[in-house]
Design a protein around this nucleic acid. Structure first.
Lengths: 146, 146
DNA sequence: AGTGCCTACTTCCCGTTGGAGAGTAACCCA
DNA sequence: TGGGTTACTCTCCAACGGGAAGTAGGCACT
């Protein structure tokens, strides 16, 4: 009769590994980067001008809260504010308040944010290059299982 | 009395933009990539061997379901299965069932998945390079507001 | 024969997250 | 006084995801 049942052993193994990938330094930043809206905000702040369907290139520029809100169609104000705050906290964007008639708040990428933006740009390019392939795979997979 | 109140106009503007970034081809793939577990699974399948705290490099290899489950400490079985299915659907990983004594299911990166993994590797490197900076920024931000 | 264990899931319950929409502050305009 | 602006904040609720337990199909011990 062992001191540990199989179930207990399983928990033990799990606990042993908990400090493993959870402690990976990439993991914490990965969680931040893989936030639904972070990538889009970076993309928006990294691009300029109104871009025709899907074009996210261009020079970095500062944007107002309302501009971002309009640009990132689908983002709730709550999440936009929240995400911008966390990006500011991480030093990826700067937040500047200008006390004009109605207050104006502008957000801009820092150098750090800009460097991350370059990575995002690469991902966007990958996405555009392989979009068709992925879509094709999905279709095939769906018809196969139907 | 205008035909449109300001509120209605706002909804109108929103609807106009809804088809905008939502239709961006990057957006759909971005949603997939920025899934909490996708990046981690890709990292796991792209690395090999047990790696000491935070080391996610190495050669791609196939892994069993249970291996992944152990490696990605913290993932629920539900999400692991779900995520693997969607990755398979997208053609990023292959799923092979070998009818051994207890069935063995192995997952492996496809070429497409491998190419995405390279991007992930770049992100991991960025994360490691700038982790300290971000952590410093956070600390500063937190002390400032306290 | 019965109990237990294995893998690779699926199912159920429930807490947290995030969206929709209304409310707020501070000020301008008619 | 009523409406407008911007940049939020708050409240309510649906849905996503985690934890734990259940399932199928078969080996292995006793």
């Amino acid at each position: 009769m062992p001191t540990m049942t199989a179930a207990q052993k399983r928990s033990q193994v799990k606990a042993d590994y908990d400090a493993f990938l959870a402690g990976c330094p990439s993991r914490q930043l990965l969680d931040r980067i893989s936030d639904k809206w972070v990538a889009l905000i970076l993309a928006a702040l990294g691009s300029d001008g109104p871009h025709p369907a899907g074009d996210c290139t261009g020079e970095p520029q500062s944007m107002r809260y309302s501009e971002l809100s309009r640009r990132l169609a689908g983002v709730s104000q709550k999440m936009l504010t929240q995400t911008l705050r966390s990006l500011e906290r991480d030093g990826l964007v700067t937040r500047t308040v200008t006390p004009t008639v109605p207050v104006t708040v502008t957000y801009e990428l820092t150098d750090l944010g800009l460097s991350l933006h370059h990575l995002m740009r690469a991902i966007k390019e990958w996405a555009e290059a392989h979009m068709d392939e992925v879509l094709g795979n999905r279709e095939e997979y769906d018809t196969r299982s139907t």
